[in-house]
Design a protein around this nucleic acid. Sequence first.
RNA 1: GCACUUGUAGCUCAGUUGGAUAGAGUAUCUGGCUACGAACUAGAGGGUCGCAGGUUCGAAUCCUGCCAAGUGCGCCA
Length: 573
Amino acid sequence: MNIRQHLDHLISQSLARISGIADCQALVAPAKSAQFGDYQANGVMGLAKRLGRNPRELGNEVLRDLDLGGIATKVELAGPGFINIFLAPEYLASELGKLGMGRLVAERASPQTVLIDYSSPNLAKEMHVGHLRGTIIGDAIARTFEYLGHRLIRHNHFGDWGTQFGMLITYMQDLPPDRALASELSDLETFYRAAKQRFDAEPAFADRARENVVRLQSGDPACLAQWRKFIDVSIAHCQELYERMDITLKPADIVPESFYNDRLAGIVDSLESQGLLTESEGALCVFLDEFKTREGEPLPVIVQKSGGGFLYATTDLAAIRYRAQELGAERILYVVDFRQSLHFQQVFAVARKAGFAGPQCSLEHLSYGTMMGKDGKPFKTRSGDTIKLIDLCEESVERAFALVSEKNPELDETARRHIADVVGIAAVKYADLSKNRNSDYIFDWDSMLSFDGNTAPYLLYAYARIRSIFRRADLDPDAQYPIAVTAPEERALALKLLQFSESVEQLAADCLPNQLCLYLYELAGTFMKFYEACPVLKAEGSERAARLGLCQLTARTLKQGLNLLGITTLEQM
RNA sequence: GCACUUGUAGCUCAGUUGGAUAGAGUAUCUGGCUACGAACUAGAGGGUCGCAGGUUCGAAUCCUGCCAAGUGCGCCA
């Protein structure tokens, strides 16, 4: 239990004792300003209202009743009825001491099976900046659930089964046999565009493409072999990028659309037998009252086309059934952009109605906003293309290399290259993670690749500074040092360190990585102020040891927090 | 037309179940390195929280209407 929960628990109990009402909410939150202490309880005013009592009077009763033991040096009633809590330095020190060299956040006592569906590129196209958010955000969330001890399953729902594959296979068939496929596919964008061009321009080509779709879906071995070749090259491309960006997705996490092919008919059968299916204009549909079309007519979820083909809603239903019933997922998270929110609402509603996901299984669409250009329109380059993800990374790494070469010219090139790799990728990831995923955001090279202020390099710099202290004094950074808290800057740092678990647990609850970014930025800032005010190596005796202890815990927390975000730390930069 | 999301400092963004004087970064201006790393730090200026009502002890946050932007709305994924 973290400090906030602990205080909330104690004060809620006190409120319950005084009022005789069982479900009292203490509403404990970190204090907004230092003058109000470290934590404040806001629940007295609401309760006073419920009881028809004077909030100050009630607050005073709480103060008389409340026993926080040695946790606080001062508990005061302020303003209209806030309870401000000032924690004791000895308590902070002892709580930090309990962490020792062990985990910074306790593992969940009752872990859940959590399945997260993210990244999910379309294999026909190379990954561009539009895929960035889902991949980075999903990876951070996945790492966090895993760290908390949940049974985490990653699913990369690759788009490998659409009608576009008929077109691509047909184009592939027409390539001169002496040209190596691998080199043709090295630029997937160009390949896709060339195929699309022929598809649009040549009716005969388009007809063959459609025939190939049918052959492919009916299991024609020749078509499947060609499709497989294409898929393999595409997967290799993606994997290369994941490794470059330190994304935890592995080939084994790929559970593509084609995986569900054999299960689609069963979905339709199940809906049919439950009486949920209606035929409309030749297509098999599920109608739900809560969804309407443009004309105000009931909006169907189409699960089988008039021609007999299945759609992506069918695939998603099959995926839900598989994940909930066969894999036993208790929470299924979809990190997919917000444009698909209606689709997921519909699919979730049908899945519930049909019993594909039971009431114990939570279905959550973690949507994120679009990347916009500086003109406020969806982002494109001047030529109308999107920026490839790999190019974005290279640009960031180059900028980082130029900067580290300027700051630390004495480092050899290998070291500078390594630092640039880490800093460049970290900056790109953090730029995305630090924004609330729900809102659209403006893409701008200079702010995305900025290395000043609230950026990944700031956090990495704080870490490198700490490691530098231990290196300079030739001290073991992994030994355990006693913790004590005296100076105000030490106190602020100690409190901040203890709040790491609050931040991580919050992330698991609402899946907003920007909250963890904010915490880490504040932690680094609190450390920087401590660093300015409290010399470590010049201090002596127990003061020096205590400061080393705070430094070490800060480094560990930064490293762990950055790791959850998918960012690697550096010993020097 | 309906639905979802968004509107906060010049710019980019935070703002946790409604809490006290709305915060960061950046840009601009002024200080701090013979110092445990200046990729840092101290300070200044900068706001009708889109607009108008409402709910209440208290609203950027909840409700209603309006304005603006983005997105989606039957056989693509």
